[in-house]
Amino acid sequence: MNPLELLRGLATTLSMMFERPVTYQYPEIKRPVRERFKGRHELKRYDNGLEKCIGCSLCAAACPADAIFVESAENTDEERYSPGERYASTYEINMLRCIFCGYCEDACPTEAIVLEHNYELSFTNRRDAIYTRDMLLVPAPEHGRPTPMVTAPREFDRSIPEMADPQ
């Protein structure tokens, strides 16, 4: 063996000593994920505070893992959650079943369900993994009112209205 090659190898080791470490210091410093990263779901709202989800269960039908359970109820003008006839009275996603494929996002006619950027999903109990409607729903935006709200008759009679998203 050539001793010069040994020295060359050691020189590489020595030069690496002065390089910055590559490790992401995860719990303290979180590396931002990509824009299209698919993490934990969120149920979105319109700018006026109404929920986008109309309880149509298309996400549940599209889900390959059967992770989503939706139950819908009727909206009234005195107690309105979403535009149109119905809203999701129960919306549950089992995070341990969900494979974060984004088919629910594709299936949603109102773009209510969006896979956002939270990936910190660990549970000590399987029951905790079931995220309910209240956990998934984003808080009402600044201009909006919280749901249920009282609205004028015939104001929101379309399920897929032309309404602004929160800025």
């Binding site: 995860y26 660990s122 549970f123 109990n125 993994a129």
Partner: peptide, 25 residues
């Protein structure tokens, strides 16, 4: 099982979060 981690697969950060959850436990 002590800790369940969701994800298919979880990110390495997800696994580390699970390990920290286990540490708390």
């Amino acid at each position: 099982v002590d800790v369940y981690i969701a994800g298919c697969p979880p990110r390495p950060e997800g696994l580390i979060h699970g390990i920290l959850t286990l540490h708390d436990k």
